[in-house]
Nucleic acid binder design. Structure first.
Length: 744
DNA sequence: CTAGGGTTAG
């Protein structure tokens, strides 16, 4: 509709290009500008105050002057305290004859529509303006072009461009630049360049408009070439270039550009610093970050919310999360970005409980969360196993953010459900997503893999390929780990080879890691060793660790000693390697060696990472450490533990004590085993949920053989499904069996 | 009396 009316108006306007000379009876502007009531308007900060001022205008007869009317309309249409519909009713109360005399009012209404996020109404107002016989001037066009840019109205933009040429306004600097910006923003770079090159107007502003276009399309190097041609670069052109590098993740170059700016003696401003802080965060450049922090303080920008948000982001990305929180707490008027930045800071650095606590505070403070919020909250739910909260977020997204077609959000939901043990719900979400992204396929495949559903993972991989998706390196991490979890040696080899030969993906350390783990678990230590020696990179701690753990399963003391020695060299501070080796010795009954390792550990002052299991009950996450006695319900939990042990004993359960680190007497070992964190969490689950309810727990370490056997029996005797996530994968315990088939 | 280019969270 806009298109056709523009076309008709454009032809009619060609026949009527003449300017109506102002012939109204307004007093001279100077006289009115100093009128006390007009000064009142500039200080007005609410619509009620405005109405009072308006009534004064009426009482004094001032409202009959076109100038006063235009000022009233200006306030209503443009002020954040204004009201566009009020502006429109004022506008319509002006007789058409009078309207025709005044460009200012039309231009203001067009701008008002643009500001109230209704750019189409701007264009419609423009057509009304033409129909009324008013000839647009150079002030009319910039906001029209901005409106076209915002709605990607390329066709309308071209027509407006034609109008500008017919009216001879193309040599006006403002109009000229806004045309370049329009073409650049709708993605018509060639046209933007053409307009730029045809004109002799080549100042920093028009250059920067074009440069920004190139940057937004990802052509940063072309942008740089243009940038170097700018005769005198001002602060905005420098800012655009610096931001260009940041937006394309070229952070070092952003900092280099910033140095160039300082060398050129162009003082940075707040925009510069916001952008540079982002680069500092990504690079971990805390020193420059600190310097900017002082700059902000010294320039009196301490209460600038954008700068403070950028500082919060920089500090948390550099690992100074507490410093970030201090800044956050000091902000008076936090905006949504402040909250999201802080949550994100916690979540990215692994402070999941803090992230969720802040999210809770955010909701209590009546701040509306958005998709960015949930992209931090969902991974925290996933890692903590906070399923109830995750479900709440899902419902919220369904209700309020359904229109947000943010693909990452659905991927995060799939990942959250998978990691919280609900693989079937993860699948439902996956199936319900309209526009599946590569990431969502990857999340689903990895989800199946960590639940030990190798077949479903591999089927999904085929389905994905059939639908024309090109798998990436992350896809193959999922596929290969599915093979590893299920012990599928031959298929594992086949996928590994097809990754390299068919999909031309060069294997990364993680892929080799899966293969080495797969071979070692199958007891094929020679093959595993061969692969490790022939890969292009050095094995990391995770690979040596998986080998060591396989040695423990297969009781391979000799190779285990060799592997442990490598691991000690690589990660001297990691107690896990000592613990595993000691377990290997214990399994072989070599208690002298167990003692030797223990002494080594003590000499180094290292402590085993304490086992920790969390369980969510009624939306609250409860954490249990080994031998924890600090829970509110401690007595009831231990009463339940005794009950569990009694029932297990009656069922003929004999604890296997070979995995205990220290060579103590057998009775003590048994005592220590009963206090493993997963058993505490399960006991708490048994007393605090209804009979028959599924119990879901998350453990920070791998589950030990003893707890694994015990949990299988508990699932049968207490008739509970128990879904346990350990460091490596999921275990679904049901009716005395586990989904991992005792292989993990 | 109005109008052109740059800014942060994922």
């Amino acid at each position: 509709m806009v298109v056709s009316s523009l076309v008709t108006c454009s032809s009619s306007s060609t026949t009527s290009i003449f300017y109506v000379l102002p012939s109204n009876s307004d007093p001279p502007y100077k006289l009115l500008q100093s009128h006390p009531y007009l000064n009142l308007l500039s200080q007005c900060n609410s619509i009620n105050t405005f109405k009072q001022i308006h009534s004064h205008f009426i009482k004094t007869g001032l409202h009959n002057t076109l100038f006063a009317q235009s000022k009233l309309i200006q306030f209503c249409a443009l002020s954040p305290f204004g009201d566009l519909s009020y502006a429109l009713s004022l506008f319509h109360s002006i007789p058409q004859q009078q309207q025709q005399l005044n460009h200012f009012i039309w231009n203001t209404i067009i701008r008002g529509h643009y500001l109230t996020l209704s750019p189409i109404s701007s264009l419609q107002t423009y057509t009304l303006m033409l129909e009324s016989g008013v000839v647009p001037n150079s002030y009319t066009f910039p906001f029209l072009f901005k409106s076209c840019a915002k709605t990607k109205a390329t066709h309308e933009g071209r027509q407006l461009h034609a109008h500008v040429l017919k009216l001879g306004l193309h040599s006006d600097a403002h109009v000229h630049t806004s045309i370049i910006t329009m073409y650049a923003r709708v993605g018509e770079l060639d046209d933007a360049r053409l307009v730029f090159e045809k004109s002799t107007l080549r100042d920093a502003v028009s250059f920067t408009a074009l440069i920004t276009g190139y940057i937004s399309m990802g052509y940063v190097d072309d942008a740089r070439q243009l940038f170097d041609e700018i005769p005198t670069k001002d602060v905005v052109s420098w800012n655009a270039m610096v931001a260009g590098y940041v937006q394309s993740s070229r952070f070092e170059e952003a900092l280099a550009c910033f140095k160039g700016m300082q060398k050129a003696n162009v003082p940075p401003n707040q925009s510069t610093m916001v952008t540079i802080l982002s680069a500092c965060g990504h690079l971990g450049e805390i020193e420059l970050g600190n310097w900017i922090s002082s700059w902000v303080r010294d320039h009196g920008f301490g209460s600038n919310i954008q700068l403070t948000n950028a500082l919060i982001d920089m500090y948390s990305k550099c690992g100074k999360v507490e410093k970030a929180r201090e800044l956050f707490d000091g902000v008076k008027d936090r905006d949504a970005i402040s909250w999201n930045t802080m949550i994100s800071g916690y979540s990215c650095k692994g402070f999941y409980e803090e992230a969720l606590a802040l999210f809770d505070l955010m909701l209590r403070s009546n701040i509306t969360p958005n998709d960015v919020t949930f992209l931090s909250v969902l991974p925290a739910c996933a890692c903590l196993g906070a399923l109830e909260l995750g479900k709440w977020v899902h419902a919220y997204i369904d209700k309020k953010l359904k229109s947000t077609s943010n693909a990452s959000l659905w991927t995060s939901l799939i990942d959250m459900y998978a990691k919280c043990g609900c693989i079937d719900v993860a699948e439902q979400v996956f199936r319900s997503v309209d526009c599946r992204s590569l990431a969502s396929w990857n999340a689903m495949i990895s989800g199946y893999a960590m639940h030990g559903h190798a077949e479903r993972a591999l089927d999904l991989f085929s389905e994905m390929v059939d639908e024309g998706f090109q798998p990436d390196d992350i896809t193959f991490v999922g596929v290969l780990s599915a093979c590893t979890q299920a012990g599928l040696v031959d298929p594992g080899h086949q996928y590994f080879n097809s990754m390299i030969q068919v999909y031309r993906i060069s294997p990364k350390l993680q892929h080799y890691g899966c293969m080495i783990d797969l071979l070692a678990r199958a007891g094929k230590f020679e093959e595993a060793n061969f692969l490790m020696r022939n890969m292009e990179m050095e094995p990391d701690g995770a690979i040596w660790g998986s080998l060591l753990s396989a040695c423990r399963v297969h009781g391979n003391v000799e190779f285990g000693e060799y592997v442990a020695e490598r691991l000690f060299q690589l990660e001297p501070e990691n107690p896990g390697a000592f613990v595993l080796l000691s377990n290997i010795y214990a399994g072989a009954g070599r208690w002298d060696d167990v003692a030797r390792i223990r002494t080594k550990l003590n000499d180094k002052g290292m402590k085993k990472v304490p086992g920790c299991t969390s369980i969510e009950v009624d939306g609250v996450v409860h954490e249990f450490l080994v031998g924890d006695k600090f829970h509110q319900q401690n007595e009831n939990i231990y009463r339940m533990l005794n009950e569990v042990d009694k029932v297990l004993k009656e069922a003929g359960f004999v604890p296997d004590t070979s995995e205990v680190l220290y060579d103590m007497d057998e009775e003590w070992k048994e005592g220590a085993l009963t206090q493993h964190s997963e058993k505490l969490a399960i006991a708490f689950g048994l007393i605090s949920t209804k009979p028959g309810t599924t119990i879901r727990i998350v453990k920070n370490l791998r589950v030990c053989g003893n707890c694994h056997s015990a949990t299988k029996l508990i699932s049968k005797i207490f008739n509970r499904e128990i879904i346990a996530r350990d460091r490596n994968r999921f275990h679904h315990f049901k009716d005395g069996f586990c989904s991992c088939n005792d292989c993990w």
